Simulated scan of single mutants.
Amino acid sequence: MRGFIFSMMMLLLPACAGTTITTLPVPDPLRDTQWQLLDIQYLDDTVLKPDTAGKYILRFTSDGSVSIKADCNMLGGSYTYTSPSGLEFGPLRSTMAFCGEKSLYNRFTKDMPFVRSFVIKDGNLHLALMADGGIYQFSPLP
């Protein structure tokens, strides 16, 4: 029996030698979605929440761009999705209005360049900062 299996393998190997295996691209699960911030959780157990729902919104578009409403300011730029869960934002341009002392705008501008991955769990989007720096949790918007 062993000889038979070996013979079959020898017959099949030349047929497979020139074969190229192609993988299909994985669709971007963030494309054409929008999310509102629920909270930000840092490793030191600090949890920050927006004072009003809808003040912090992420919108991912089909052309690979992202727009971010961060309190009274708007940020915009590009993002790169890498299967299965990689995410990086390109340079983000921003308006520069002062939103008040309790605004999370400064956190957004400081943290977004350090986003490296995401997961969608229980319907919510979780953005992870590099080196386990923190997690931004968003709920979906229609």
Rank of each mutant, 00 (worst) to 15 (best):
G77C: 00
E101S: 15
G133A: 06
D45K: 14
V47L: 05
Y79W: 07
D132P: 11
W35F: 00
V66H: 01
F89T: 00
L92A: 00
G86R: 05
T109L: 08
M112G: 09
R59P: 09
Y136T: 09
F108R: 07
S94Q: 01
K69Q: 14
G123H: 06
V115H: 02
V119D: 14
S103P: 11
L127C: 03
S117L: 03
G77N: 01
D63H: 08
Q34F: 04
T52H: 13
G54N: 08
R107P: 07
G54Q: 07
C99H: 07
P91I: 03
W35L: 00
M130H: 12
R107M: 09
P91A: 08
D63M: 07
Q41Y: 06
L48R: 05
K49T: 15
W35D: 00
V66K: 01
G133E: 04
S67R: 11
L104G: 01
K69W: 02
Y42S: 05
Y105Q: 10
A70E: 03
S78T: 15
C99N: 08
F138H: 07
A70S: 12
D51I: 11
K69H: 08
P113T: 03
P50I: 03
G134M: 05
L87W: 00
R107S: 11
Y136I: 08
I40N: 00
I135T: 15
G54C: 06
D71C: 08
N73K: 09
F98V: 09
V47H: 02
K110N: 12
M96L: 15
L129E: 02
V119C: 10
T46P: 01
G134F: 01
S139P: 12
T80Q: 15
G90D: 00
R116N: 13
T46A: 02
K102R: 13
E88F: 07
F108S: 05
C99E: 03
G86T: 06
D63P: 09
D71L: 07
G77P: 02
S67N: 10
S85L: 12
Y81M: 11
T52W: 09
Q41T: 12
S103M: 06
Y42A: 05
Y42D: 01
T95L: 05
M96T: 10
G100Y: 05
